[in-house]
Design a protein around this nucleic acid. Structure first.
Lengths: 260, 260
DNA sequence: CGGAATGTTGATTATATTCAACTGTTGTGG
DNA sequence: CCACAACAGTTGAATATAATCAACATTCCG
């Protein structure tokens, strides 16, 4: 499955693809290992292997068993639910210092998603066995594991909420608005999409055609400017307005509610 | 939020709503406490309280903090994502010996869903504090907790997969077919819906009108018989066929692929 | 440069919602 | 026990949303 041989042929690691310090660095940077003692990290790292995938390659496929939790050292990948011919729904994008497969690997169940590299990517494959042992021996790690799983649950529920509770126009508006967050001003603000528009469309569960039309409409209404991949947010307030325009009814009636 | 005073007024429990043996029985029946030692159960039970909800009452509301994990001793409830005026998406139905709120309570985050009793229901409210302590002291419990969270993740991903990858007709067909499972025969088989058609519609993310039309079509095509709430599955094979009719394409085309 | 991937646009169609009216069922209080 | 209200379900017509099909433009790379 993974490019272990390919990894071994790389000049960036030593002869057998196992550079302990590199692997320990990758492992210890994961949220799962936050505040976990060095000895635990070293132990787990001693079992993990590095692999490389080039842009477009599959990191994992729906239906197969994962050998363990897979972490990304650098690069970018997408977790997708495949659909018919060319269609897909992106569940998550994951980048450096993120991991996937915790639930699947721990329960030893077939992987539910395809994982595809969107750029040249370096992976660390952390076998389940040492993770399960660590979970029983290291309270901090167990806490991290639980927090990761619980957080994932909340994210997925929010995902379902958004994908049925709001129109695609609303989801897109909310997303664009969130990209502008860094600078608090309500002035024009150039943002750049982290992935292609087609991939983003899949992220929102729509087609690239629909995405194109939605963006054009936002442009025509003066909320954004766009030339090619370059997007500028012109009216952040109105954009945020669209994001919750129709709906609100129950949310308002209920009091302050959350902010997602 | 919970009807503790109401619970205390019930004749079924003792004066202050705390019957230790009853509570221990409820707690120990939960998947979370499977194989957990009696002393742990007793400890946690000593912190938990019983509450009652009548049909239609809210057990929890979106946006509020849950006091802990909530378990159902008897009765039935639905976890719903509220939408505008009357609309809702049911995430799960939960019945006796099931619980909810693990992720929300452990992370101390606002509840994402409304929880509504569909029948008179008895609840056990298990505060977070003792659960967190137990998670650090009892490996079996920690394992159960992790398994519960991980399982919930997989279910939600499957849920998203179904709700975007298949049409509502497919989801309904798959559901009806699953109801017939008990007897393996392909003959006519009477099934009964566990909840109202309206509630089921919300479970599938469609309106009751659409549900009605879909069922009518299945009836007209001779796949089921239906008079009121009484449904009989007439052609299970064809029903299963509808459930996966269009799709499959990429799954086949994908063959071995992978990244080696 | 040339080809593949990405993005755009229009026309048409599928799917399910919304609105509205109406029927059947159930549970409750007079 | 019946009347009545509340809920559950059905049906049709009009509508909204986004997918699909098809053609073309643009950008990115090797």
């Amino acid at each position: 499955m993974f490019q272990q041989t390919y990894a071994n042929a790389q000049g960036t690691t030593n002869g057998n693809g196992r550079d302990p310090r590199l692997i320990e660095g990758i492992v210890s940077s994961l949220p799962l290992f936050r505040d976990v003692g060095r000895s635990s990290v070293v132990l787990v790292a001693s079992y993990t292997r590095i692999a490389h995938c080039r842009r477009g390659e599959f990191i994992a496929q729906q239906g197969e068993r994962l050998p363990g939790v897979i972490a990304i050292a650098y690069g970018l990948a997408k977790l997708v639910l495949p659909r018919r011919k060319g269609e897909e729904k992106v569940l998550r994008f994951i980048g450096a210092n993120e991991s996937f497969g915790e639930a699947t690997a721990l329960l030893d169940r077939p992987c539910q998603v395809d994982v595809v590299a969107l750029a040249d990517t370096m992976l660390a494959v952390i076998p389940v066995r040492p993770l399960k042992q660590l979970q029983e021996r290291d309270v901090t790690f167990a806490n991290n594991l639980i927090a990761t799983l619980a957080g994932g649950l909340l994210l997925l529920v929010a995902e379902i909420d958004a994908s049925i509770g709001r129109s695609s126009a609303q989801r897109l508006a909310a997303y664009l608005e969130s990209l502008a967050l860094p600078d608090a001003g309500s002035d024009a603000c150039a943002v750049q999409l982290p992935v292609t528009k087609t991939a983003l469309a899949a992220r929102f569960g729509i087609t690239k055609e629909t995405m194109s039309r939605l963006l054009r409409e936002l442009k025509e209404r003066g909320l954004i400017a766009m030339t090619g991949a370059n997007i500028t947010i012109l009216d952040r307030a109105r954009l945020a307005g669209i994001a919750r325009e129709p709906a609100a009814a129950t949310t308002i009636a209920r009091g302050q509610a959350a902010c997602i």
